[in-house]
Computed example of a mutant assay.
Amino acid sequence: MVVASGTNAFAKEMAIRKRIASIYNKREEDFPSLREYNDYLEEVEDMIVNLVDGIDVPAIEARIAEYQRENADQIMNAQARKAEEYAAALAASKGQLAQTGVDLSSSSEAGTSAVAQGAYAPAIAGAGIAQPRPMGIPVPLGSGPDMLGFEYEDEETMKLRAEKAAKAGGWSVEISKKRALEEAFASIWI
């Protein structure tokens, strides 16, 4: 039981960290000095520890809600920037940057140095035209590949894929039945 409670505590802490990191998502370059950035990180870590330990939770939740209201634009911009970086890293890992003709050596930020600061620039901008940052809540585009490129599958497709994988590995239902019968009858003579 100790392991289960430790696992639950770990899962709780990871969920809290993920939630707080999505809200308090400033970076070092967002601060005028390293000292102010470190103070910000320390404040965020103190809130996480107190939430995990259950210390003064209502006051901390109120601070989080107030911060979200006051910094909604900054939070959304940081999330968009993170998504752009993720898309660029994913494209780079697939070799798509080479196919699009983007020259990474000519700019310091993967082709976005020509775009005005604060303007929305997709990770792979062919024309280099600055666009306004999207506002509002992102809406899923429907079915299709997720962020990692995997297709969403229904239960039947997943079952079929599992059966094909098992057969490719040399497993079959007949062999399993035969082995189960042999083991059952072998145990009778003992």
Rank of each mutant, 00 (worst) to 15 (best):
M1Q: 12
G6S: 13
T7K: 10
A9V: 06
E13A: 15
M14H: 12
A15W: 06
S22C: 14
P32L: 11
R35E: 14
Y40H: 03
E42Y: 07
V44Q: 05
E45I: 02
E45T: 09
D46W: 05
I48P: 00
L51Y: 03
V52Y: 03
V52D: 02
G54T: 05
D56P: 02
V57L: 00
P58M: 02
A65F: 08
R69V: 07
A72Y: 02
Q74W: 13
I75S: 01
Q79A: 10
A80D: 07
R81Y: 06
K82H: 11
K82D: 14
K82N: 10
K82M: 13
E84V: 13
Y86Q: 12
A88C: 14
L90I: 10
A91N: 11
A92D: 14
K94V: 06
G95N: 12
A98T: 15
Q99I: 14
T100M: 07
S106M: 08
S108F: 08
G111H: 03
A114R: 13
V115Q: 09
A116R: 11
Q117T: 13
Y120N: 07
I124R: 00
A125W: 03
A125M: 04
G126Q: 13
G126E: 12
I129N: 10
Q131P: 03
V139K: 01
V139C: 04
S143R: 08
F150I: 04
Y152Q: 12
E153Q: 11
E156T: 15
E156F: 10
M158D: 04
L160A: 15
A162L: 12
K164A: 15
A180N: 09
E182H: 06
A184P: 00
